[in-house]
């Protein structure tokens, strides 16, 4: 495991809400981040089917997008979400881990632009996609 991944993992674990969701950072670097969220009954949004709540997916995507911004070579450090749009394609299959991959594809002096996709264990059908803008804090 690289030092950067180890450091980023410790950073995610220091965020109380990320810890509460059980988020695991599995890859990070050069404006890209991947975060996994194992299935948990606390996250259920539809009690009849056991499908996790869209809000949990939103929270995970927001975290992953933020991590992608911070790992971008031209981003000096901290960031905050300005706006985030999420589209839900389908319900995540109950019992499966969901994984978000975010890419920070452009950074200006003040704003970073990010897109993300969330999958469950079926690699062909996305669960949700997101696009967002984030602040770039000055050095």
């Amino acid at each position: 495991m690289s030092d950067q991944l180890k450091m980023a993992q410790q950073f995610i674990e220091a965020l109380p809400h990320a810890r509460a969701l059980g988020l695991q950072l599995t890859d990070i670097g050069k404006g890209c981040a991947t975060i996994a969220m194992p299935y948990s009954e606390a996250l259920i949004g539809d009690p009849e089917t056991g499908v996790i709540h869209g809000g949990a997916v939103s929270a995970m995507m927001d975290t992953c997008c933020g991590a992608a911004v911070m790992s971008h070579p031209s981003s000096p450090g901290a960031t905050a979400t300005i706006g985030l749009r999420i589209d839900y394609m389908r319900a995540a299959t109950p019992g499966q881990t969901v994984t978000t991959t975010a890419t920070c594809y452009h950074v200006t002096r003040n704003v970073a632009f990010v897109r993300a996709v969330t999958m469950d264990e079926d690699p062909d059908r996305p669960v949700a996609t997101a696009s967002g803008s984030f602040t770039v804090e000055s050095r």
């Binding site: 939103s58 901290a78 999420i86």
Partner: peptide
């Protein structure tokens, strides 16, 4: 609750928790 915090240094609510709150 402390578990809703995203940035422990400020501290501030997690943007994801806020998004989830609006959705709920």
């Amino acid at each position: 609750d402390e578990k809703l915090i995203g940035n422990p240094l400020l501290p501030a609510l997690h943007g994801g928790a806020t998004a989830a709150f609006l959705e709920v």
